[in-house]
Amino acid sequence: MSAMFTKAMARNMFYGGTVFFILLFLALTFHTIRQIPQRIPGETPSPEVARGKMLWETRNCIGCHTLLGEGAYFAPELGNVYKRRGGEFIKVWIKVQPTKVPGRRQMPQFHFTDQQLDDLVAFLKWTSEINTENWPPNIQG
């Protein structure tokens, strides 16, 4: 690199550039957070949805499935599963696991109560109604 461009100049560019883009990112973040309530069903998640999310997390569902395209790629997308299958199917599905079909990918049995199954479905329904800019491209996720 040319001698005209000194190390001190490079350093200043680093600090200046970094601070500028952190501030810009914070401004965009501020705006995004204010927009989110209009992009989700209801202003804030209900207690059932919050409980469902806690069940989703403490069973580590994300370790096999994607949710809105994020997670593991071993099992189907669940961000839109409520629309694909409906609440009743989801509950029955979870109850009858594992399928024990030889060689097929297996999902564990979680021993949920009926209340917990309702909470999970509430969470998945809520998630399926988020405005995701039309992702996924089709119902298969």
Binding site: T18, L24, F25, L28, T32, Q35, I36, R39, I130, W135
Partner: peptide, 14 residues
């Protein structure tokens, strides 16, 4: 930093 936005396409963000 702003590139983080490539994860904000389809998760409910604007």
């Amino acid at each position: 930093i702003i590139g983080t936005g490539h994860h904000y396409y389809w998760i409910g963000t604007p």
